[in-house]
């Protein structure tokens, strides 16, 4: 059992925002879409968590995953490739969030 009271609602939301921001940073279309999907499903699934020990474990994993995501999205921006055929060249026309 951890002594910490667990993350607050605002903290979780801020973390989620970080995930979305960094996933959006991927230059590669497939990785970007995957990590956006993964962030959404994981946070939705973990919303139902009740047990404080499980919550703090999920929080720790999420922080570690965010570190990976941050590093990899930067690397993805350093080694870029052409855009995919389903990807609009003008990002302003990219209607989905």
């Amino acid at each position: 059992m951890s002594a910490s009271p667990g993350p607050s609602r605002a903290q979780v939301l801020a973390l989620y925002k970080q995930f979305i921001k960094n996933a959006n940073g991927f230059n590669n279309y497939n990785y970007r879409e995957y990590f956006l999907r993964k962030a959404r499903t994981t946070f939705r699934k973990n919303r139902a968590l009740e047990d404080p020990a499980t919550i703090s474990a999920a929080w720790d994993t999420a922080l570690k995953d965010l570190g990976v995501l941050k590093r990899q999205s930067v690397i993805s921006q350093m080694y870029t490739f052409d855009k995919q055929v389903v990807e609009p060249l003008d990002p302003k026309h990219h209607s989905r969030g």
Binding site: Y29, N30, F81, D82, K83, Q84, V85, V86, E87, P88, L89, D90, H93
Partner: peptide, 11 residues
Amino acid sequence: ENTGFGTRPIY
């Protein structure tokens, strides 16, 4: 060719 979109093939 699909104009206005990228050129990299879908894998």
